[in-house]
Amino acid sequence: MRICVDAEKCEGHNRCFALAPELFEVDDLGLAKALNDGRVPPGLEDKADLAIANCPEFAIRIVEED
């Protein structure tokens, strides 16, 4: 599974970082980036789904299913 954060949509709510710090990092302005080029390590797919489902800006999407 691969995910990405759309930088145009992210407004820095930090929800993804709070829910899945293994998958995202945020800068000083709160803007998020997917770690590891968006590749989700096996076993963390549920956390990725949780981050996607809680983003108020609909900024996170799956770019590659398994």
Binding site: V26, D27, D28, L29, G30
Partner: peptide, 8 residues
């Protein structure tokens, strides 16, 4: 200017 004061 203010966001870094309130980052996680």
């Amino acid at each position: 200017l203010i966001l870094p004061l309130f980052s996680p």
